[in-house]
Design a protein around this nucleic acid. Structure first.
Lengths: 230, 230
DNA sequence: ATTTTTCGTGTATTTTTTACACAAAAAGTG
DNA sequence: CACTTTTTGTGTAAAAAATACACGAAAAAT
């Protein structure tokens, strides 16, 4: 029989963490999904996540699940919402604390013990398990706000990137279009980019300058309470 | 004996909601605290909150606790963070989903069955129970961000208010100072204010125009994805 | 009547945003 | 090799927004 040895005077909900993992392929935003191997929603795609242990904070739990299910370690994660509809899980009362992670997509491919994990472009995400469709919408909404206060590119782009990639990223997240020249001008004015001497090696057409983020300048700027305007 | 009849195969944390209630007295931001009547932290001030029931969402739970502990009904609340340090409550593992409420302070005074509730100006908040000091800091941080996307004055100011009150509110939340003339100009350009024919009745010195928010214009503007800039 | 406080208002200057076009680099084509 | 195609770097003029700033009028207190 399954022994139920943890007893309480009042009913307690289960608590899970789920993690929406964002990556950027240079053109489009992507999310990493895992295929569920068990009921409910067996065979459906979902965000990696699972039950919280009693001796870990939600952040620790989210990072652990990330590692276990996708092989990702030390990702940048940020909590964005707790989902608590009493019937969001058909089995029992489960509250999930949702995080989003920003990862460099090219550092994730391969090396994962989770073959069940797969990247999907945002506009090609299949119907998800549980209320994960809603979770994704909320994650996007939060990311869109976040980008005004933090240069999320730090986490999503490779060390070296072109101005076009950076612009593509902002356009993908905010779903807008910028004039190429004005975007460059504005971005450089923030003074948080290093223009490198190198250019793109496997050049597509004409080779472009590479940039990297200047963490020191960014932190300095942030101290003064600035905002990235777009 | 205290019967423990709710049993699970794995340990479950307790889940509570807590609510940081912001009000504005025309000059300063205030928060509503309740004095704890029981251990732990008996006699310390804390945010109203309590255990979540199994058949209610966190939002419902937060609103219920608000009503029970302060008499407030139908407040505007917004979830902002789940606090989950394994030792944040000395008794047992408790995860709290924290909300902030924005209320019209003048509609709250009196009428409360909770005499234990009291308003404190932000810079006069006493040391709080549990990790509520941290919760307050996070709530402020979130409110400060929120104000760039939503006119929080809708909820914090009375129906009719003066431009000075509105300016004081923005200054209190953002902790900055604006030029009176420039603030007025900018605010009116958003076109979400109705200038009323009335002026302040119990006039302090010279009477000032009263304004109200124009919800329709605001919603229109919001649809287009605008941002309040300050 | 005088003083004190708060209110409403406008303009000139600076800064930021926006719109916009051409020449050079590389690759692909035949 | 010439030619075409795609992508890159770059600057300027016009419009809009942000800023700095001062005085006269209304009301209350004395």
């Amino acid at each position: 029989m399954d022994e139920k040895k943890y007893c309480y005077k009042y009913p307690h909900p289960s608590v899970t963490t789920d993690c929406v993992i964002f990556g950027f392929d240079g053109t489009r935003l992507q999310v990493l999904l895992v295929k569920r191997g068990i009921e409910p929603y067996k065979g459906r795609w979902a965000f990696p996540g699972g039950f919280l242990k009693m001796d870990e904070s939600c952040e620790e739990g989210a990072l652990r699940e990330l590692r276990e299910e996708t092989g990702l370690t030390g990702a940048y994660i940020e909590q964005f919402h707790a989902f608590s509809d009493p019937h969001r899980d058909p089995r029992e009362r489960v509250i999930t604390i949702a995080y989003y992670a920003l990862v460099k997509i090219q550092e994730v491919q391969g090396g994962d013990d989770a073959e069940r994990a797969e990247w999907f472009a945002l506009d090609e995400v299949p119907p998800l398990a549980f209320d994960h469709d809603r979770i994704l919408r909320e994650a996007m909404k939060r990311l869109r706000e976040r980008i005004h206060f933090e240069p999320v590119g730090f986490e999503l782009l490779p060390e070296k990137f072109t101005m076009k990639q950076l612009q593509n990223l902002y356009e993908a997240i905010l779903d807008v279009h910028f004039d190429r020249r004005n975007f460059t001008k504005k971005m450089l004015h923030f003074n948080i980019l290093n223009q490198l001497d190198e250019t793109t090696r496997p050049t597509p057409k004409r080779e472009a300058f590479l940039y990297s983020f200047n963490v020191e300048s960014y932190n300095e700027l942030k101290q003064k309470g600035f905002r990235l305007e777009f």
